[in-house]
């Protein structure tokens, strides 16, 4: 297998940088010990031992993006309105140091947002960003207490969504391409040949959820008390949705830059917010946290798999690590399974 020594990773990143912006797990200045996927520039330290607090989804679904620009003007014929689409053209972006759960999240999102034309509406920005994203994934030899990706068949061995896999070995990383674009990267003259053995990969927590698809639209849906009890400590802050690599729901809104010009934008939204479904009449079909959490779990483990195929979760554990009240989605799934 191909191999790169740890002290040559910077050299690899520089070569990757020739293809486009490189994003890597880093502890950005002022991040107070938090590791995030951030733009990498020569000289920046890469943090490959700790997990990132936020997922890499912003590379395909920015937290906020412009969809359209518009401009009103007065002409002799009266008021005129110009609308310009946002420029979707862009070159490659390289994501370095994603984990298996991060990379797999892209394929989960693809099932809705990048279907072939004709099968679904096309997401205006997602497709082009996704098409131009190169994903270099670091396989996990250790998980933490919140990881549960082994709930899926391939677990930590999955290569879905990746172009190139890196496996910790010796004083560096073994590399294996899993796509034609990954193959191109392996052709760079930066790799050494190695006869090191690939490492034993981590086995994380396993949570059974297969039986939930039917229950979540049936007996569990009508059992609002179950959801009330489970979410009694939830404060509806939306942390779980913002850190989730597969939560894709968005809000759309207009912002004026002058009395005549503005932009139509979209931003991440959170199904845990009261305002998310509040109607102008005052009616809210999901008025309490229990209603909203039921929808969140239902969407991830029943509606999305029924409509799109994959479960809308990859077991990354971010919503568990950061929840301010310690609400653990695994407890919810287990309790739901036993109900």
């Amino acid at each position: 297998m191909k191999f790169i020594a740890s002290d040559r990773i910077d050299g690899l990143l520089e070569r990757l940088g020739e293809r486009g912006p490189v994003w890597a797990p880093r502890e950005p200045e002022g991040a107070a010990g938090t590791v995030l996927f951030a733009p990498w520039r020569p000289g920046d330290a890469v943090e490959l031992d700790r997990f990132t607090t936020l997922s890499a989804k912003k590379l395909v679904l920015p937290a906020s993006e412009k969809l359209l620009s518009f401009s009103y003007s007065l002409t002799p014929e009266g008021e005129a309105l110009d609308i310009t689409g946002a420029d979707q053209g862009r070159g490659d972006t390289v994501l370095f140091g994603a984990r298996v759960c991060d990379a797999r999240a892209f394929t989960v999102l693809d099932a809705l947002l990048a279907l072939p034309p004709g099968e679904s509406y096309q997401d205006p920005g997602y497709r082009s960003r996704r098409r131009n994203l190169l994903v270099i994934t670091l396989a996990c030899t250790a998980g933490d207490a919140a990881c549960f990706c082994s709930s899926w068949k391939e677990g930590t061995a999955s290569t879905q969504g990746s172009d190139l896999m890196l496996y910790p070995a010796g004083e560096g990383y073994l590399a294996r391409s899993v796509s034609p674009r990954g193959e191109e990267l392996l052709a760079l003259d930066i790799w050494e040949d190695s006869d090191l053995e690939p490492p034993e990969l981590a086995v994380t927590d396993r949570v059974p959820f297969e039986a939930l698809e039917a229950k979540l639209v049936g007996s569990l849906f009508s059992d609002l008390d179950f959801w009330r009890e489970l979410t009694a400590k939830c404060v509806s802050c939306g942390y779980c949705t913002y850190t989730c690599p597969t939560c894709y729901c968005f809000d759309m809104y207009d912002e004026m830059s002058s009395s005549r010009d503005g932009e139509r934008c979209r931003s991440w939204d959170a199904c845990m917010f009261y305002l998310y479904t509040l109607e102008t009449s005052g009616h809210n079909p999901r008025p309490t946290i229990a209603h909203r959490y039921r929808n969140r779990i239902g969407h991830k483990f029943s509606y999305y798999p029924a409509n799109q195929g994959p479960v809308l979760c990859t077991g990354c554990g971010r919503c568990i690590r950061g929840c301010p009240v310690g609400l653990d989605i695994r407890d919810v799934l287990r309790a739901a399974g036993e109900r």
Partner: peptide
């Protein structure tokens, strides 16, 4: 167009 997420009734 079925992407933004909020108007679902179940699936």
């Amino acid at each position: 167009i079925g992407l933004c997420g909020r108007c679902n009734v179940g699936p």
